[in-house]
Amino acid sequence: MKVVVERDQCIGAGMCVLTAPAVFDQDPDEAVVVLLDEQPPETQRPAVEQAVDRCPAAVIRLLP
């Protein structure tokens, strides 16, 4: 599983960190998404799928 984020369109809503804190953080300056783990373990899949679904700006993608 590979995770990709589009930082340009991020609005810093914070849903990814709320949903999958092991995989995402927000930078301290603009609160824009920071990917902590580009290839998280399978155990993180449900949380990452939730983060994809709950991101209002749709900037997170999950590649197989």
Partner: peptide
């Protein structure tokens, strides 16, 4: 609009701020 949100977000939706 993103420019404005980037000025809001650190104050209202950053986990450490929260």
């Amino acid at each position: 609009h993103i420019r404005i949100r980037r000025n809001f977000a650190p104050q209202v939706s950053h986990p450490r701020r929260l």
